[in-house]
Design a protein around this nucleic acid. Structure first.
Lengths: 184, 184
DNA sequence: CACATATGCTATACTGTGTATCATAAAGTG
DNA sequence: CACTTTATGATACACAGTATAGCATATGTG
């Protein structure tokens, strides 16, 4: 564990916060590096000393939030409350997740996130291989569906409670997929 | 029905074809207007006489293919072959659909397409309103799932037949959603 | 054929990215 | 605390891509 200069941590935190704040105000595509550095009160040239493009910074931001969620789920005992944890975490970090979806223009970042998550689901879910629906497709479906559900919830300003969303998630995604992959 | 100058049709067709060809060669984000006009063998300034930005051109391209599919489905008699029509159409226009997904950076275009389709599904499916899953969420889920399924199929170079995909689609998306929205 | 107009071409302004350089401030080290 | 390291600020600059304007030419329409 090497020690990191406090100035680096400070600058990167300022840049990350600035990106999130800006993404909530205008379209992700419209955000410039100058916007970010001005908002963060950091020199323009300093940006390039940490990231080579805005997408790099976005990836960092998303990684932080997703890692938090992953750790949260991993450390929880009861497995059935997984959906609850997800929606609680989304609600608590709504700003970050809004950025995540509004920035979907950035296909690379989101695509990697999707594929990585699908890989995790694939190996942890252990879908039967002899069914009509191939395990890979089932995993891809689950990840796409949960992301779509979260997006809908945020886009519509969270009109249903976390508990209700958990029920919908269980039925529409978990149970439905499980049933679809199970051979008759 | 107003008559359109053949020169206009010619130019727009050249630009659309050029965009599709380029999108298959490199990242959508990396495509410049100059790339497109050079490939189309059209003057740079002419581009702006038809579209104000590349996304406009992309929207035109996607609209063409999606309208074709919509018309196809509308004109078919048997309703159960809907999935078959979809995957046949995707296979026949694979290049266009690949562009559609690779360009997902362009959130606006894809987002509008998704939301519009979800609205159509919502009013044609007539999901029960008293179930656990709200109809709006069910419609959103179906559209996101079918798009994710098509994307997976293309990303993996169509490893399963159109018929197999139709079966997967019916079970994983149609039947599963229908069952999830139905109150006990 | 006469007219309308879409296109080609050139010049130009503007915005945003990315790099280089140097002085300064701030952090780490013994 | 003195010394060294390095992260930052500031500025200048090269470059790519967007967007508009003006005029000559080619092509389609009636």
């Amino acid at each position: 564990m090497q020690k990191v200069d406090r100035r680096i941590l400070r600058t990167e935190r300022l840049l990350m916060d600035a990106l999130v704040a800006l993404a909530l105000e205008k379209s992700y595509d419209a955000i410039t590096i100058r916007d970010i550095t001005e908002r963060a009160d950091v020199s323009y040239s300093t940006f390039f000393r940490h990231y080579s493009e805005i997408d790099d910074l976005l990836a960092e931001v998303l990684k932080t939030v997703v890692d938090d969620l992953t750790r949260l789920i991993k450390h929880s005992k009861s497995r059935e409350s997984e959906g609850l944890l997800i929606f609680q975490h989304v609600a608590a970090n709504a700003a970050f997740f809004r950025v995540m979806f509004s920035s979907q223009g950035t296909s690379r970042v989101m695509q990697k996130l999707r594929d990585d998550t699908a890989a995790v689901v694939l190996e942890s879910a252990r879908f039967p291989a002899d069914g009509l629906v191939p395990p890979e497709i089932a995993a891809n479906h689950m990840v796409a569906a949960i992301l779509a559900l979260i997006r809908w919830w945020l886009d519509h300003d969270m009109p249903y409670s976390v508990e209700r969303m958990e029920q919908i998630y269980s039925r529409l995604i978990i149970d439905a997929t499980q049933q679809a992959v199970t051979p008759e």
